[in-house]
Design a binder for these strands. Structure first.
Lengths: 331, 331
DNA sequence: TTGTAGGCGTTATCAC
DNA sequence: GTGATAACGCCTACAA
C-alpha cells in the first residue's frame, strides 16, 4: 500500500504538502495540488485511517450494538441512526451480540479499544455497572432499552404504558381471559411490558393468573411453542398480548393449528409494528413504535454527548395502538 | 485514557515490559508481571487498538457489507460468517448499504482506509472493475452474489438451476400461466433467477409472455404492488414464481385481497426459505438456500485469502426445493 | 507557499 | 529479565 511519503516522493513535494491537499485546506498552489492529485491517483493512494485517527484522536465513527440482527425492528432503528449519522459525517458500523451477554461485553471492550467516537446500544444485557465501567468516559447512549440505575442516556417509548394500552384494548373488547407472551424476564423491556399487562388487568379488577403468562425468546418458533402451550394448557383464553410482533406471528400459527379462527376465536395483539404485521393474515393489531425516530434521536443524543453538550437523560417518544384485523369484540 | 506509558510509570517499569505482559509473551518475572497487572487494573487501562494495529499492520478484523439489513436472509448468512470468524479470533463488523451503489462505494473505500484484514460483500451493486480497483489487493470475497468477470472469489448457489427447479415444480403441477416477480434487473442474482424461469418454460415449450414478469425491489410492499398489478393485468395467471420470499409474502396479500385462495386459485413459490415462510398462512413453498453455510464458507475463503493460501474462485453450495402448502395441482 | 520535525500509542529489535 | 529506541503513517506547529 502506498503511503503519504510515496505520494510525496512521486510528486516531488514534502509529505506535509500532500497532507494539505488531502484535507484541501488551501495554502497550496493550484499547480502543486494538481501534481499531488495526479500522483495520488497514479499510486492508488488511500490515506491510512488508523494512522490518521491515532494522530487526530477521533474517528468520525460510531458503532451500534444490536442484540439480534435478524429482528427487523432493530434494522429500522438502525436506519434512523444511520441517516442522522450521515448528515453529520459520521460513519456508522454495526455489531451483533446474538442476545449474548458475553458477546456484548466483549464488543464493549473491543470498541473502547478501537477508540470509536461513540456507541449506541440497542441492548442492555450486560449487567448495569459493568457497562459503565467498560466504556468509562466513552460517549454512549442506550436505545429502546435502558439501564435501571439511569446512568446512561436513553431514548425509547414508555413500554409500561404502551403495553397497558394494548391490553386495555383487549379488555375493552370484552376479553377477560387474556394470555401474555412475554420475553426473557432478564430484559427490562419485557418486564415493563409485563407490568403494563398486569396493570391493565388490575385496573379492570381482573384477577391475575400467572399461568397465563409465558416467557419466550422473541423468535417465531418460540412464539409458536409458547402460544401452543398456552392454548393447550388454558383453552379458556380468548385473547393474547404478545410482547413483540415476532412472537405474535408465531403464536398465530399455533392458534391456526388448533383450529382457532383469528380474531373470532382468538384475538391477538402484538408490539412494535413491524412491516410484516401489515402483510400477515389477518393483519396484526399492534403497538407502533417510532423506530426510525428512536434511531434518529439516539444519534442526536450521542452527538451531543460527543460534543460535550448537555443532554436529556431520558427521552420518551410517542407510541400508538394500531388496530387491525387480528382483534375483535369478544363473542 | 491511560496509555501504556502511564501504566509503566505507575508500575515503575518501562513501557516495553508492560507491552510484554500485555501479550503475555514470557520473558517477564512473575513479580513484575503481577505489579504491572495491578497497575493496569488500577488505571483502568485499555490498549489503544488504533496504535496497536498501526504498529502490527493487521487488525484481526473483517467487515461484512450487507445490502439491506432488514432482510433476514442476510442476517442468517452473517451468522455463519460471524461464527466462523469467532473460531479464528477475528472480529466481524457490519455495514449496511441500503442497496445503494454509492453507499457501497463509499464503504469500500472507507474500509480500505480502515486497514481491515478483509471484506465479505453480500452485495455487488458497484460496477465491476470499480470494486476491484477500490480494494486493490485487500482480501475480499463476494457471497450470494458474484462479479460477472469472475475476478473475486464467490460462494453462492446456482441461482439459475434453483429458479428453474422452482418453476418446473409449478409446471409439473399443471400450471401454464405462471407469473414471475423478479427483483431489480441490475442485479445478477435476479437476472439469473429470471433466466431460470425462462429456461423452465422453454423446456416445456411454453411460449414466454414478458407481460408475466414484473420487477420489484424485494420489499413486502413491492411484492404486494407488483403482485396486484400482475393479477389485475393478467387474471389468467394461476401461479407465480417470486424471486425472493419477501416479495412472495407481499404478493400473497395481494392475492387474498383479490379473493384468490392460495393455493387453490393461485399457487406461489418463493426463494430463500426465510424463517417466516414456515409461519405464514399457508406456509410457503420455496427454494432453500444454505445461508449459514454460505456465510461460513465465505469466511473460510476469506481466511485463505488473508493467509495467502490458494482458493477456489467459485463455490456453489447445495440448494433444495421445499414443498409446503402454497402450491398445489392446477385444477 | 512549502518543508522540517515531533508525536499520537504501540510493538519489535537491540543492547545490557 | 529489562530498558532504550526506532518505526508504523499521518498531521500540525513552527520555520523558512
Amino acid at each position: 500500500m502506498a503511503t503519504i511519503k510515496d505520494v510525496a516522493r512521486h510528486a516531488g513535494v514534502s509529505s506535509a504538502t500532500v497532507s494539505r491537499v488531502l484535507m484541501n485546506q488551501g495554502n497550496v498552489s493550484a499547480k502543486t495540488a494538481a501534481a499531488v492529485q495526479k500522483s495520488i491517483a497514479q499510486l492508488g493512494y488511500h490515506p491510512n485511517a488508523l494512522a490518521r485517527q491515532l494522530r487526530r484522536q477521533h474517528t468520525q465513527t460510531i458503532y451500534v450494538i444490536i442484540p439480534s440482527i435478524d429482528n427487523t425492528f432493530f434494522s429500522e432503528v438502525y436506519r434512523g441512526i444511520e441517516s442522522e449519522a450521515l448528515v453529520h459525517h459520521y460513519q456508522a458500523f454495526l455489531v451483533n451480540t446474538n442476545n449474548d451477554k458475553n458477546q456484548e461485553n466483549l464488543f464493549l471492550s473491543a470498541l473502547v479499544q478501537k477508540q470509536t467516537d461513540g456507541i449506541i446500544s440497542l441492548s442492555a444485557a450486560a449487567a448495569t455497572g459493568v457497562i459503565e465501567r467498560q466504556v468509562a468516559g466513552l460517549p454512549m447512549v442506550i436505545a429502546c432499552q435502558y439501564l435501571e440505575d439511569g446512568s446512561l442516556p436513553n431514548v425509547a417509548i414508555d413500554n409500561i404504558a404502551a403495553a397497558k394500552e394494548a391490553v386495555t384494548h383487549l379488555l375493552d373488547l370484552g376479553h377477560r381471559n387474556i394470555g401474555c407472551l412475554s420475553g426473557p424476564a432478564t430484559n427490562v423491556l419485557y418486564r415493563d411490558r409485563l407490568t403494563g399487562y398486569l396493570r391493565a388487568l388490575a385496573e379492570h379488577d381482573i384477577p391475575v393468573n400467572m399461568g397465563y403468562v409465558s416467557y419466550g425468546n422473541s423468535t417465531l418458533q418460540s412464539g409458536y411453542d409458547r402460544g401452543l402451550e398456552l392454548l393447550l394448557g388454558h383453552p379458556e383464553i380468548t385473547a393474547v398480548f404478545a410482547a413483540g410482533d415476532v412472537m405474535a406471528i408465531g403464536s398465530m400459527k399455533a392458534a391456526r393449528r388448533l383450529g382457532r379462527r383469528i380474531p373470532q376465536d382468538y384475538a391477538v395483539v402484538g408490539f412494535d409494528d413491524l412491516d410484516i404485521t401489515r402483510f400477515c393474515d389477518p393483519p396484526l393489531t399492534t403497538i407502533h413504535q417510532p423506530m426510525f425516530e428512536i434511531g434518529k434521536y439516539s444519534m442526536q443524543t450521542l452527538l451531543d454527548l460527543i460534543e460535550g453538550k448537555p443532554t436529556q437523560n431520558q427521552r420518551l417518544l410517542e407510541y400508538r395502538l394500531i388496530v387491525r384485523e387480528s382483534t375483535v369484540e369478544h363473542a
